[in-house]
Computed example of a mutant assay.
Amino acid sequence: MRNKEFSDRRGNAATAKATMLDAFRTAQATAAPEKAAKLAQRVAVAQARDQRRAQREQVKREEQQQLESEAAAQRAAKTAETELRKSAMDDRIARVVADEVARKAERDLRYAKRKAAAMAAA
């Protein structure tokens, strides 16, 4: 009697296992289109995320390039302003030196005339 009970239990377990395996396969087959749809949705979301990331990076690169070009323009303007100031200062110095040379030449001419007049009178 004992063997009969063991074989019954073993048979019942095998039947239950087969039933569960069939139910699992049926559930897998039923869920396959749903899984495919979810997978496609996840892929679409990931692609959209990557596209948004690429757009943000592009905007950042463009902003960086704009900032760099503005900085270069500011440096160029500052350099031009510095050169203009230096040129104006050089012109001013040149005029002062030229005026000084002209005054010295006039003074030397006056001294030479006085000396010539003093020599002619003597």
Results as ranks from 00 to 15, higher is better:
Ala16Gly: 03
Glu83Met: 11
Arg107Phe: 11
Asp99Val: 06
Glu57Tyr: 04
Pro33Ser: 08
Asn3Thr: 06
Asp108His: 06
Lys104Tyr: 06
Asp22Gln: 15
Arg56Leu: 10
Glu63Pro: 00
Glu5Gln: 05
Phe24Cys: 03
Gln41Val: 01
Gln51Thr: 07
Arg95Lys: 15
Met20Val: 04
Ala46Asp: 10
Thr30Ile: 06
Lys78His: 09
Lys86Met: 06
Ile93Glu: 10
Gln41Ser: 15
Arg56Asp: 14
Ala71Leu: 10
Gly11Tyr: 05
Glu81Pro: 00
Ala16Asn: 11
Glu106Thr: 06
Glu5Asp: 09
Ala40Met: 06
Ala31Phe: 07
Arg56Pro: 01
Lys38His: 07
Gln66Tyr: 04
Ala46Thr: 01
Gln47Asp: 13
Glu5Cys: 01
Ala32Met: 09
Ala44Thr: 09
Arg2Trp: 10
Gln58Tyr: 04
Ala117Ser: 14
Ala80Lys: 11
Lys60Thr: 00
Ala46Ser: 08
Ala23Lys: 15
Lys78Ile: 04
Gln58Phe: 07
Val96Trp: 02
Arg49Trp: 04
Arg75Asp: 11
Val101Asp: 12
Arg75Gly: 03
Ala31Ser: 13
Gln74Trp: 02
Met89Ser: 10
Asp90Gly: 02
Glu68Ala: 15
Ala116Leu: 09
Thr79Tyr: 02
Ala31His: 05
Leu67Arg: 13
Ala120Gln: 10
Gln47Trp: 00
Arg107Ile: 12
Ser87Ala: 13
Glu83Val: 04
Arg61Gln: 12
Met119Leu: 15
Asp22Lys: 15
Arg10Ser: 10
Arg92Cys: 05
Arg92Met: 05
Lys104His: 11
Ala122Asn: 04
Glu106Arg: 08
Ala14Cys: 01
Glu106Leu: 12
Thr82Leu: 08
Ser7Arg: 14
